[in-house]
Write a protein that binds this DNA or RNA. Structure first.
Lengths: 335, 335
DNA sequence: TTGTATGCGTTATCAA
DNA sequence: TTGATAACGCATACAA
């Protein structure tokens, strides 16, 4: 069923049918009703391929997320939605697990997939998980409006909502110092992620600044989306001498793995060993004991990203925007 | 930059350029190289709108998920991926939070969005969350191959991979009986979900069969994706007289909310009060104590769904397939 | 091995 | 207020 058949059935021209769809105010009431009835009766649906061949806005925003675990994503999506829906856009979360499994660069995945998806713009969550050299891949997407939500380094060429990891680390270290912890065990996430490198760099800078010493051997690496890795890698930190008095995990999932191991082995948290981390996922509140963790203002971040994207869609020539968000520390029982 | 310009620049016809893209084996080596070079130099990208106007297979499968929480989804997706990727398909998780917020029927959302996305088929997870009357909406999608993964009632008209809730409930009750529990508190999920109705029905059938009495007042309702609701609604069960000796939550998130409340209030689990639930999300293993829960064979389910979908894409006229999967009980410390 | 011509379903321009 | 028709970019049957 296409526009021609509808036209024939309604005894009008294709142009009139098109007007009924796109500019109904230009069509006489009676023909409008007639055509609409025919469309209804025949369950006519517009063909987006043909339509977009004429370069009409799709009103679709796609948000690419690098993994299926970190729940801050949904807060961000919620915030972005709130803004975008005012302008008639639909936001769709797009999560290609396959590309992750294959260690394919995120951007290359987008590039490949964009041929298969309509969109007016892209919110790209987590250059954090992008491999080195992704900037080159990004060029392929030259004409697509993109906003990056980034916990790693600031990219020069793109609009970016940036989460200040320096503050995360500083807040954590200051709090630990205040609590009297001098010996910190660190469980970082995937070694090759920008966010990991960035946090470690900030860790060195800020610990030096505060006069806290963190030995190389006190740092181990887990996998961000694997609770199990937290469970496993903490063991090596417990063999250190002197033993750390607190474990700083780079996200809540790692922290949960750590705590499970500690609880199973009859450690009291935080008395025997404290735990602190980043993300403030809902589970951080409902684990027992509750997890002290860095909170990122997800909804605000989403709203800002959406606004910037709309600006960019509206006018490709405005200057690049960078917005910085600062996290806060959510204190619970684990530390 | 389009196929015509490339043709002109390379001094060949559009047909040849098209062949370079789609049937390179039909093109002479030297022209192939020449055309490819020109395409490269001009950063030529195929226009998917024009291409799909010609009804080419997109090799895209979309999996619609009803909410962003239940992690079994990712197991299923993993299984489905494994099969689909053999045939060159890409599976994409598609999660439209907006439609959920608005309580819009899931199918209506798909219908609206399908105009904006290319796909050869659809894996529809959870008629569980579909509202009554969704079958009518489904008709709109008449021509799209669909496989439903369903924990609720079997739909007559669609290929379905079905999870046997009768067995889930039976296994749970048998285990509780064996452990000597006669007074069971039940925390069901959203009252209007098919999966909830189905489980409650099975609960009545099987408890009767086993001679276990479950009073109406022992059943309260939470919200599947809200840990907090589990935390809150368990309170009323604790005021019952006699007090239940075990809480049966309809999913792990609810169970975690329950356990958080119990642990905060110095209940010993399972000595003072046991907890059992459904889903076996990773966190069920890493909560402390570990949660005894019903395990669904997610990967197997995904593989089966993918295979059925491929069959359907291949031949629209084969009879409807129904496959039933049985869950198992994963015993940990909470019960 | 390559080229010509046509159709895919829609929108937009122009004329009536 | 409506209609005829030319694009849009690509794939393909047919011809050469």
């Amino acid at each position: 069923m296409n526009i021609h058949k509808i036209a024939k059935l309604a005894n009008v021209s294709v142009a009139t049918v098109s007007r009924v769809i796109n500019n109904p105010e230009l069509v006489k009431e009676s023909t409008l009703i007639k055509v609409k009835t025919v469309m209804e009766e025949n369950n006519y649906k517009i063909n987006p391929f043909a339509r977009n061949l004429k370069k009409v806005r799709t009103k679709n925003i796609i948000m690419i997320i690098p993994n299926d675990v970190n729940p801050i994503i949904f807060d961000i999506a919620k915030g972005a939605e709130e803004i975008l829906e005012k302008y008639g856009y639909i936001i769709t979360l797009f999560n290609n697990r396959k590309s992750l499994k294959k260690q394919e660069g995120l951007i290359d995945m987008i590039h490949k997939n964009r041929n298969n998806f309509f969109m007016d713009g892209l919110i790209l969550f987590g250059s954090a998980s992008l491999q080195e050299g992704y900037e080159k891949s990004l060029d392929k997407l030259s004409n697509t409006p993109i906003v990056v939500i980034d916990t790693g380094a600031i990219d020069k060429h793109l609009d970016t909502v940036y989460i200040d990891e320096g503050i995360s680390i500083l807040l954590t270290l200051q709090y630990l110092q205040k609590k009297g912890h001098h010996n910190i065990g660190v469980i970082a996430g995937n070694e090759d992620y920008n966010v990991t490198k960035r946090r470690l760099k900030e860790l060195f800078i800020n610990s030096e600044k505060l006069g806290i010493k963190i030995n190389e051997e006190n740092i181990v690496y887990g996998v961000y989306d694997s609770i199990e890795s937290g469970y496993n890698v903490v063991k090596s930190l417990l063999t250190l001498n002197p033993k750390p008095t607190v474990i700083f995990a780079f996200n809540d999932l790692l922290a949960i793995g750590v705590m499970k191991y500690l609880l199973e082995n009859n450690y009291k948290i935080p008395e025997d060993l404290a735990v602190i981390s980043c993300d403030n996922i809902p589970m951080a509140n409902y684990y027992h004991p509750g997890i002290t963790t860095i909170n990122f203002p997800g909804e605000e971040i989403g709203k800002t990203a959406a606004q910037i994207l709309l600006d960019r869609i509206d006018n490709k020539d405005i200057p690049i925007q960078k917005v910085l968000f600062s996290p806060t520390l959510k204190i619970r029982e684990s530390c």
